[in-house]
C-alpha cells in the first residue's frame, strides 16, 4: 500500500476529510481502527540513555486522523517516547534505541532518511512555549521560509491563515512585528502551535502542551486540537487525565517505561483490562 501519494506533500490545499470512517463519532473510530491507514506504527521500540533503559519494547499504532493521548505517572518515559517519534533524542549524548518506528510505510530510523523532511511532517510542540527571538509574524513564517513551502509573496497570507486557524489572529493582527515574549503564556503556546502547523505536518506530537497554561488557554488549545483532526494525526502526552478524556480518541497508558495498555477512551477509563491502569485512572497511583 502506498499512502504517500494520497497525502499532498505541500498541503496548500487543505486535506479533505474524505475518509468516511474518521468523520463519524469517536466510538466508530475506536471500533474501526484496524481499517484505517496507520500514520505511525511503532514496533518493539526500546530506548536508553547511557545504558539506562528508559522505554522498553513499545508497540503502538497511530491511526490516521486520530488523537492519541499518552498518559502515565511522571518519569514513565512518555516524553522520551514522544520525542523518539521524530528523532528529537538523536542529539542527546548517550541515546541508543532499537526497534522500528514507521511513518506510513517509511522507516523513521532507516538509512538515508531526510531528518529535515521528517520533522516537517512530524511536528512537535513542547511543554513550555518556546517562541523564537523574532517578531510574531517571523515566528510563524520562519518554518515556511526554511522549507520554501510557498513563494515569498504568499508567506504573509499563509501566516495569517495559520494564526486565524489557532485563533490568535484577532489578538495579534495589529502587532505582528512585536516581540512574541510580550504575549501571554497561552498566546505564546498558540503561536508555537501556529508555527508548527505552518509547515503542514501530517503528525503533530504534543508534549504536555497545556501544563504551563491557565484553564482558559488550555481550553483554547484543546478546542483547536479537536478541530485539527482528521487533517492531522495528533499524539498528546499529558499528565491530566481529564484532558485525555476530553480530547483523545485513544489512550495509551505508560508505566515504568512500558506500554501497559492501550484502548479507546471509554475502555481505558471505564473498563481497563490491567490492574495498574485501573489504579492509575482512579488516582491510586501516579
Amino acid at each position: 500500500m502506498n499512502t504517500v501519494q494520497a497525502k499532498p506533500v505541500v498541503a496548500e490545499v487543505a486535506v479533505p476529510a474524505s475518509n468516511p470512517a474518521v468523520a463519524g463519532p469517536e466510538l466508530e473510530v475506536a471500533g474501526t481502527t484496524g481499517a484505517l491507514p496507520k500514520a505511525m506504527t511503532v514496533t518493539g521500540f526500546t530506548g536508553a540513555f547511557s545504558g539506562k533503559t528508559i522505554i522498553e519494547d513499545i508497540s503502538l499504532e497511530l491511526a490516521e486522523g486520530s488523537i492519541t493521548a499518552i498518559v502515565g505517572p511522571s518519569g514513565c518515559g512518555k516524553s522520551t517516547f514522544l520525542r523518539s517519534l521524530n528523532r528529537m533524542n538523536d542529539r542527546i549524548p548517550g541515546w541508543k534505541c532499537n526497534g522500528s518506528v514507521r511513518f506510513y510505510d517509511q522507516d523513521v530510523y532507516g538509512q538515508g532518511v531526510d531528518l529535515l523532511s521528517l520533522r516537517r511532517r512530524v511536528g512537535m510542540v513542547f511543554q513550555r512555549p518556546n517562541p523564537f527571538p523574532m517578531s510574531i509574524e517571523e515566528n510563524v513564517a520562519c518554518g515556511i521560509k526554511a522549507h520554501r513551502l510557498v513563494p515569498r509573496s504568499e508567506v504573509r497570507r499563509r501566516v495569517q491563515d495559520r494564526l486565524e486557524e489557532v485563533g490568535l489572529w484577532k489578538a495579534v493582527h495589529d502587532r505582528l512585528h512585536d516581540s512574541p515574549f510580550r504575549l501571554s503564556g497561552g498566546q505564546q503556546q498558540l503561536l508555537c502551535l501556529a508555527r508548527s502547523l505552518a509547515v503542514s505536518p501530517d503528525v503533530l506530537l504534543l508534549d504536555e502542551p497545556t501544563s504551563s497554561l491557565d484553564p482558559i488557554s488550555t481550553e483554547a488549545v484543546e478546542q483547536l486540537l479537536k478541530e485539527l483532526v482528521p487533517d492531522i494525526t495528533i499524539v498528546i502526552v499529558t499528565h491530566n487525565l481529564a484532558q485525555a478524556r476530553r480530547v483523545a480518541d485513544r489512550v495509551a497508558f505508560f508505566m515504568d517505561g512500558r506500554l501497559v495498555e492501550t484502548g479507546t477512551v471509554q475502555q481505558i477509563f471505564e473498563d481497563p483490562r490491567r490492574i495498574e491502569t485501573g489504579q492509575y485512572v482512579s488516582g491510586r497511583i501516579g
Binding site: V9, F103, G110, L116, S117
Partner: peptide, 18 residues
C-alpha cells in the same frame, strides 16, 4: 524513493539547505 523527502522539489530544497 524515501517517503520523508517526497517531492523532487523538497529534495532539491533540502539538498541546498544541507
Amino acid at each position: 524513493m524515501t517517503l520523508v523527502a517526497a517531492t523532487p522539489h523538497e529534495k532539491g530544497v533540502n539538498r541546498a539547505r544541507t
